[in-house]
Design a binder for these strands. Structure first.
Lengths: 328, 328
DNA sequence: TTTTAGCATTCCCACTTTTCCATTGCCAAT
DNA sequence: ATTGGCAATGGAAAAGTGGGAATGCTAAAA
């Protein structure tokens, strides 16, 4: 159990380090604590013993440890209200009634990434959680059509395809075939199902089956896994802790890897969750703050990724605000 | 006018530097030139006087200057055939008949970026060069529809929108109105035209005009400027000349700026063009190799961006191959 | 018992110095 | 025209230097 003064010191150190990215000395603190630097030093020493602080070398100031950040987030951090200007920017996006939810989300993430200087991520439902509800085809002209794929969760994807001399008749039959046989299949299994259930029989019903089959097959392979969006990767280049190219390369590789990003979803609590450093699987040098959202048309996960030295209070309130707006 | 031996030396230096990224010494060369290092040195000195070579410091080996690269590209470089494996990878993409051209291009660029370790870019026709040909609407259910925008160049874009209690009747009327009044307008001017020609009169024809108008307006603002695709930005992180974060940040900012990228189009020759260092407007430390392509459905520009120390011969042949495949 | 002042100690950081060596330019000989 | 020989150059890495900001400890004060 920490004394009030220890809590105060820990809080000051975390917040100062977040702002300045420099180890915090006893001198800086004693001014704000009406006591001498020696007193602060001995308190800092005990906080270090408890594992909340670290030194970068024997005679350096203190830096929060992972446990220090954790304690700060769990016990010391105060809610920070968003400023009006920022709220306004987001309101404009969400009040635009005619935007699809997913467009709102993407746009607002861009704004959030810019205003925080951190990287923002949306993860949709993984494709195995979306079941095929229906496909539809809209002919454009003799050779072009649009295939529309609708899932049970209300997700809609479309894709242009080009065909060569295929009759409308054949197209209709193919669509019917698919709508009869593979509706209800998880999107990521559609390819397999096409392969084993449609391919063998399609030639009986459809003349230009080869071409049509391939076209449909491509539509689905392209649609699978479209549900990760990472905004503002390059914000990391502005953080002093990512000042070396190897680290950056490493991190960018992970941010491009959809498998790894999926891991952020993890538990499906309804709260804002904070994963500091080694608490997340992405990278020991980053913190991920995330929340799930759920609407009747779509659910998914929002996350902000930044250095461990992240403005926790601010990001948490922004994320709360986003979640709220999305959910209605 | 360079002597044969000078040409040979320049070629060797350029090629060695491209591979090793290290200044080239007279010793390395004399082995391959059946002459002494002293002879090579005096030749190198004259090549430096002519502006084709540079030293990084008084007693360093030589590095090609921009003029050196230019001379190499114009006079010394030999065509380098692509290897079979690489060609195969691209063939698979282009032989997939049912893929839209634009999908083929994007996929092949991804492959090219991976196999070269450079950044690849496609630039489509700027939106002011595409004229609106038609819009179409596909209802999905009571509240959702898809708006399809077709341009005279055959480009098709679609977008989901959400409406609230709007009658099919109203939707039809709106679409009709637009198809009557603003077909033929350059895409990027549609917003303005909507504002001044549709907005004032729409209320006469359509009941739920506010909502519908906004929805359509949003479709067009989103569709404008979708025609730049940059693949493999992070490849620069693997190049030794981009080993410092400031440079990277600078470059990435430019690669995210669609205005700046548009500059790559510049002349509309039908050849492969090479812009070395200061010859391009993007960044003095990169080379851009580009070509335009033209098909009946679409035209645009392909570019590969890498360090000046780029494998010119390889990239040129890859681009040639890509252009060929796209154009049929 | 807690707080504080005083002080030696530590080690980082920025800077300079030193050493090493690959490479050059020049010159005289071939 | 080419070559071998050699001093000169300047960078890169290793080693050394001084200053300063921080620490921990101790003994005295509160």
């Amino acid at each position: 159990m920490l004394s009030d003064r220890q809590k105060k010191i820990l809080k000051l150190i975390v917040e100062s380090y977040i702002r300045q990215a420099k180890p915090v000395s006893s001198n800086q603190l004693c001014k704000k604590l009406k006591c001498s630097s020696a007193t602060v030093r001995s308190e800092m020493a005990s906080l270090e013993d408890l594992g909340y602080l670290e030194k970068t070398h024997t005679s350096s100031g203190r830096v929060p440890s992972e446990e220090g950040y954790r304690y700060y987030v769990d016990n010391l951090m105060e809610a920070k209200k968003m400023n009006g200007e920022e709220m306004l920017k987001l309101q404009i996006i969400f009040h635009n009634q005619s935007l699809e939810l997913s467009d709102c989300i993407n746009k607002s993430l861009q704004v959030v990434s810019d205003m925080t200087s951190y990287t923002a991520v949306v993860l949709g439902k993984a494709s195995h959680e979306n079941l095929l509800k229906e496909i539809r085809v809209v002919p454009l002209d003799a050779n072009h059509l649009i295939v529309i794929v609708v899932t049970d969760k209300g997700k809609v994807e479309h894709k242009n395809i080009t065909l060569d001399n295929v009759s409308m008749e054949d197209i209709k039959k193919t669509v019917e075939l698919i709508n009869n046989l593979i509706v209800g299949t998880p999107i990521d299994e559609v390819s397999t199902k096409l392969e084993f259930e449609i391919k063998p029989i399609i030639s009986k019903y459809v003349d230009q089956h080869q071409q049509l089959y391939n076209a449909i097959y491509n539509v689905f392979t392209d649609i699978t896994n479209t549900d990760v969006n990472v905004v503002g990767r390059t914000k990391f280049l502005e953080q002093p802790e990512f000042d070396n190219v190897d680290k950056i390369r490493d991190l960018f590789k992970k941010l491009d890897d959809k498998e790894i990003l999926q891991e952020i979803k993890r538990d499906d609590s309804n709260n804002i969750e904070v994963y500091i450093g080694s608490e997340n699987k992405l990278d020991d040098d980053v913190t991920i703050i995330k929340t799930n959202f759920k609407t009747d048309s779509e659910d998914g996960t929002l996350a902000i990724i930044g250095p461990k030295r992240m403005e926790y209070d601010r990001v948490v309130s922004i994320l709360e605000y986003l979640k709220e707006n999305i959910e209605r």
